[in-house]
Amino acid sequence: MSLWLTLAVNSVALGGLLFLLSSGFSLIFGLMRIPNLMHGSFFMLGAYLGVALLARGINFWIAALASAAAMALIGGLIERVLLRRLEGQVLPQVLLTLGFAFIIADVCLMLWTGDPWQPATPDHLRGAVQVAGLYFPLYRLVVVAVAVAIAIALWLLVDWTRLGAMIRAGVDDAPIARVVGIRVSQLFTLVFALGAALAGFGGVMGAPYLSVYPGLDFEMLPLALIVVILGGVGSLLGALVGSFLIGFLYNFGTALLPDLAYVILFLPMVLILVLRPQGLFGKVTT
């Protein structure tokens, strides 16, 4: 496969992973205005848990779902017990989530040591698929397919169900949503748990080719931030487009202009912040 095609496939696969990470981050920030700096930690902890389950011979998909469930539980508890007390207080929320990010990083270091862990690609997802004479790595295509399937499921949930309409009502005007009887508080917990679950699931999906290592959390967090700023806070379409955009910028930038990789990555974010602060698909907030 040519370099360009390899880079393109890697970019799309990274875009898929970034969507799993950033869609929850975007929903959490859009609905609850919580800048959740432990979102990368959910990705890493989910990945470590997945690795631990895979090492015990558990099926890959069951391990991914179990990790997602564990992240949903941990995320939901942190939101319900701690973040709830800091409603509307951005700086304390930043400090609390940052503190938890460090705690999770230390716990992971203690449990899984500083060595990188790279689980084997599941047997049934190994190999390559031949399309038009070109070979594509099956696993990366599966990652993209899963991300697209989850994007469609989230879109159906948010745009086509009453529950989704309630979530959007909460994003539009939380106090009035509460007055009409919507239990915004429970929706907050649900969305936070869902976001954590998606991040954990993404961590397991990414583990076979990113590997899992100390520092993965703070490598992924800025990428999620850039995606959400580019795409627009609270916008699933924005998260999807932003994820693939960043996937391409990251892979091509690192490969072609390694010295300027971060410039290529962060410059669009800076431009968007200056020229269109609401992001490509975000709404202007008053």
């Binding site: 007055v179 009409v180 009887g181």
Partner: peptide, 29 residues
Amino acid sequence: EEIAQHGVALVPQGRRVFKSLSVRENLSV
């Protein structure tokens, strides 16, 4: 949200409809 369960509803000042929701969704939620 608990007070709403007592059968109270508000038409707020400035209307404050949920602008990103359709008319039907505003009613259904």
